[in-house]
Simulated assay, not measured.
Amino acid sequence: MEKRVDAREYHLNSKQAYLNLFFEQAEDSIAVFDLEDRVITVNPAFEKLYGWSKTEAIGRSLPLIPPKNLEGARSRAKELRKGSHYYLFETTDMRKDGTIFDVQISLSPIYNSHGEIIASSIISRDISHVKENENLILQSEKLKVVGEIAAGVAHEIRNPMTVISGFVQMMNEDSNSPYYEHTKLIQKETERIELILSEFLVLSRPQVNQFVNIHLAKIFDDIIQFFQFEFQQKSIDIILQNNYPDVIILGNANEIKQIFINLFKNAMEAIKDGGTITLEVFPSKDNNEIFIRLKDTGCGIPSYVLERIFEPFYTTKTKGTGLGMMVINKIIQDHHGTIKIKSQEEVGTEILLSFPVVQS
């Protein structure tokens, strides 16, 4: 009897040791909650993933769920207390610092020896990198579709549009024509079609650009001059803060101009009744890069739009193609630059660009 008792005790202790070892060394986050959603215990992977230490977590009801997901989480918790299970459920959780991340979770009730639910366990895994890869694949597929469409259609459309545009320009020379306003409108729309085709072609053709030295100050002067009439019409003040007029970058001048034409157009559309657009130029600490900050006092960009702003065909504009920001991003990447966007609704938008500098 003593040997059998000793063997059983050894078996139980070994089992408990293995369970503790699994709990402590598991790569997935594991947390145990009581029926009031207070933390009973967590493993080291939970501390690493969510940012809460074990000491901070135990006994507390932690804010692990983003506000927009609370209703669904409460519903699952209610079903969990009835004995339901959830396996590999994909959602979003929140870290201690407030950052949101994609997560895959499994929820299970914990029973006592009498078959009563006394707690629940949550095993979670960060799948942000998986979601990111899925998005990259989707973006790549969309780009492929855009390229195929552009390569097959854009040139064919351009040929008749060139003829139409030429004849409309001839008709516009007679300002006394009863159709003058109509032909002006036709000309404006053909120019818009040309812009759309240019965006398609940028996405479709392989980049074999012969980059040359570009004086950024000249680009800025040209762009501001180009929009000067529209600035006056819309009562927009343009502020240029450039103490580095001699900065040179390597690139394609037309494509760099296209970046700032699109950005200025977006800024002007965001400003309804007068406002300010500020263009600020400054170098990096090591002088290897130049930063261009473009700020406007427009209506701002909603967060849900900002998250998808570089997606192809995604637009909130009635006349937009959903390609403008995507083209900008591609051109910047081709020039080994970066772009970051911050925005606040009813306050304005700030866009920070960077490009490598040609060292003199």
Rank of each mutant, 00 (worst) to 15 (best):
V247H: 07
M326A: 13
D6G: 13
T92K: 09
E289S: 14
F23L: 01
S108T: 05
K342F: 15
Y111L: 12
I256M: 07
K340V: 02
K15C: 05
L136G: 07
V305H: 03
Y244L: 10
I110N: 10
V305S: 05
E79H: 11
K342Q: 11
Q233S: 12
E350D: 02
F22T: 01
L197V: 03
N20Q: 13
G115W: 07
K319E: 10
P206Q: 02
E9S: 08
Y244G: 02
I261V: 12
T92P: 12
Q169D: 11
E194F: 15
L352K: 14
V5D: 08
Q228Y: 14
R158A: 12
S140P: 02
S284K: 04
D34R: 00
E116H: 11
A7F: 08
E156Y: 09
K188G: 14
G298C: 03
F22P: 04
T92I: 12
K54G: 02
V103T: 12
S14F: 12
K319V: 04
L294R: 02
T316R: 08
G51H: 09
F310E: 13
H85N: 13
D334W: 15
L195G: 08
P206T: 00
D222A: 11
K342P: 01
N176M: 08
F23N: 05
I277L: 07
I331M: 07
A253S: 09
N43G: 05
I332Y: 06
G275D: 00
Y304T: 03
T297P: 00
S113L: 13
L263A: 09
A26D: 00
R192N: 03
V212G: 14
T276N: 08
N69K: 11
I137M: 11
S121P: 00
V168K: 05
Q232P: 11
E350V: 07
A217M: 10
L80I: 05
L195C: 06
A119Q: 01
S106H: 03
P66C: 01
Y87K: 15
N287W: 12
K265W: 13
S29R: 01
K340R: 14
N43D: 00
A154W: 04
